[in-house]
Design a protein around this nucleic acid. Structure first.
Length: 176
DNA sequence: CTAACTAAACCTA
DNA sequence: TAGGTTTAGTTAG
């Protein structure tokens, strides 16, 4: 498990990855030290033996390109942040949900219920909510673009203030 | 296996 | 808008 701390316009972010793809990308913290603590906590919380299978040979990962894209993102640019994700750390259901979320483009939004319907469980919105909450690769898996259909904007692991900030950055509106 | 959790949605008034 | 009901998957015991 590789780890690094990168600098972004919004602070310092910790990330970790395997030869398969990204595992963790945290939201920026004010200091590198804070970012490191958050990263360590995120890694400790990972399920034990990951089911990572097919490894992509060669190095897909260039820290500098991640750093550059994240910087563009916080600068308000419409970037896709399409980096590979190591899905081996999620349960089957979480993976199905998060892979849907992964496809949501910059500036777009969907609802928990819509994802549930896409997965064939039209009434599974609540289960989708708990699965989305397991996302560890923030921004890369844009779970902030998933909002509640009727009341409110749902929740967010990194705090609702962050969610509002990210949605505003992308010009996404929601009911409040 | 059950029961108590959810980052939801729906129904009624 | 507010409150209660329904709902599906995860997690703890």
């Amino acid at each position: 498990m590789n780890t690094a701390i990168i600098e972004t316009p919004a602070g310092y972010s910790g990330l970790s990855w395997t030869p398969v793809g990204l595992v963790v990308l945290n939201l920026p913290s004010p200091s590198p030290q804070d970012a490191e603590i958050k990263l360590r906590e995120a890694i400790e919380g990972l399920p034990v033996k990951p089911g990572s299978k097919k490894e992509i040979p060669g190095s897909w990962f260039e820290l500098s390109s991640v750093e550059r894209e994240i910087a563009l993102y916080f600068g308000g640019k419409s970037v896709d942040l399409e980096f590979p994700v190591d899905w081996g750390y999620y349960t089957e259901f979480q993976k199905r949900v998060l892979q849907k979320v992964y496809l949501i483009k910059w500036g777009q939004a969907t609802t928990y219920g819509q994802i549930a319907a896409d997965l064939g469980s039209p009434r599974g919105a609540r289960a989708v909510g708990s699965a989305v909450g397991s996302n560890r690769a923030l921004l890369i898996i844009p779970c902030h673009r998933v909002i509640a259909r009727n009341s409110g904007l749902g929740g967010f692991g990194g705090g609702l203030d962050w969610k509002r900030k990210l949605l505003k950055l992308e010009g996404i509106t929601y009911k409040e």
